[in-house]
Each structure stands twice: as C-alpha cells, then as structure tokens.
Amino acid sequence: MTHRRPFFITFLAPAVVTAVILAAALFEVLQYSVREFVPGSLNVGGFTLENFTRINRPIYWWVLLDTFYISLLTALFSLLLSYPVAFALVRARRDWVRSLLVSLSITPLFTGEIVRTFSWMLMLGSDGFINSMLRKLSLIEMPLQIMYTRLGVVVALVQFSMPVMIILLATAISHVDRDCEKAAANLGASPGAVFWRITLPLTLPGILSGIVVVFAWTMSAFSTPQLIGGGKVLMISNLVYLQGFSVLNLPFAATLSLIALIAALGSLVLMKSLTGRLEKRLAVR
C-alpha cells in the first residue's frame, strides 16, 4: 500500500532548514575548538589541538563533575517534590483543586528564567525572606549563607524544573489503571502497600523520563548558577561564558562547549540505556 503525501516535502522543509542551521553552528563550534587563541584579538590563529590538552586540568574536570552533581541532585529533589503535587493534581476529586494545582505548578513555566532567578535571590539573600523570617523567629542569630552556594543553586534549579517534572509525572500517574489499585486492595494490600507495590512501579516510566529530562535540562543551566552562584558555583555553561566573554578565548570556550555537549549526550545515552533496560524488565505497557 502506498500513500501519496503531497505536502510531505513542504512540511518537512522547516525541520530541514533548522537542522541545517544547527549543524552549521555546531560545525562552526567544532572548527573554533581546533584553532589557536590569539590574546588580545577576536581573530583566531591556525590549527591546534592545544585546547583539548588544556582541558585536562583538575579545575575543568571539577566543574564538569560539579555540573553532573548539581544536575543529578536537582533531578532527584525535583522528583521528590513533584511527585506528591502531580499525584494530588491527577487524583483530586474536586475540579477547582485540580485547576488550582495545575495553574500553580505550570504558571512558573511562563515567567522567564531571569525573573525567577531574581526572585530566588530576594528569597535566599542574607537579608532575604528566608533569613529575615528565621531571624524574626529567633531560630538563628547570624544569617545563613545560601546565596553563592551549591545549595542555593540547587534550590532555584529544583523550582525551575518542577513544572516539567510535574507534567511528566502527572501524565504517568493518570495512566495508572485504577482497577489495578482496587484489585490490589481487594487482595489485601493496605493503601500504603497499594502505593509502593502498584502505583509507584506503574509510574516508573514517567519517573525515569522526568529524571532524564530534568537532568539534561539542568546540565545546560546558565543564568541560575550565574546569578545565584555568583561565580562561586560554576557549572559548565558559566565556564564557557567566562572563557568566551571575559577572557575572550573563543577557541577554548568552543572546546568547553563541545565537551559539555558530549558529556550531556553521553550521560543521556547512558541513562536511556539504563532506564530502557529497567523498563523492559518491568515490561510496563
């Protein structure tokens, strides 16, 4: 059976154009990464592999590791905080509760990253909301240092990623067959046992894709670590920025970008294969 698809080429065109431009840009990054840095100039010199050998210094490896670490922490905390929200969102009996939860969890998605990060700076600073509240309650004497720490960055990134995590989890939770939960209860499972043995395993695909998406997303975070980390918490994007726009070493920035891209893709592939295997083992429809 052959289908005639008269508009196929036409419809494909935008995707092709986008892909070509992306490929060209990546190629440009690639070719920058193998050029010499000419100090004091934006022009680059001849071919060299020096940028790649320069990567092999502990400081850069630490930034890369830190990026992994922050992304992983963000994904895990985002999951822990989002699951109850997503669950309540799907299972709420009253419509207004559901709409309220939807708007509360999705609206942040429509405020810019800068706006959200700035709000967190107001929250987390030495004179910020959290510190002044804690001091008013006499729980602390000296302000807690949250700004410019990994903790502060993770807190903001978790909030930043929660809408996406909630959407992915809510989709998974809404696909759980309620009859399976009823059947489990009928067979003697307490509400807790129903959750741990039925609901949670059946939402595992959503949990895994949520972790993967948030992890990958956080790997490329820039403004949050830039503003809240204030140069004290460096993620890979901040390092690229530093090299490219402060030191103006564009070739090395390109090399770092390439490394970041490879690291992100590599960890995604790794995660996909892990979750793929897990899912196959559980064979959830």
Binding site: D177, D179, C180, K182, A183, I198, P201, L202, V284, R285
Partner: peptide, 10 residues
Amino acid sequence: VFQSYALFPH
C-alpha cells in the same frame, strides 16, 4: 475478578 481483569502489568 474485574471486567478488565486488572492484572498487574509489571
């Protein structure tokens, strides 16, 4: 026994 059987798929 449920109409959909409600067997645990996992």
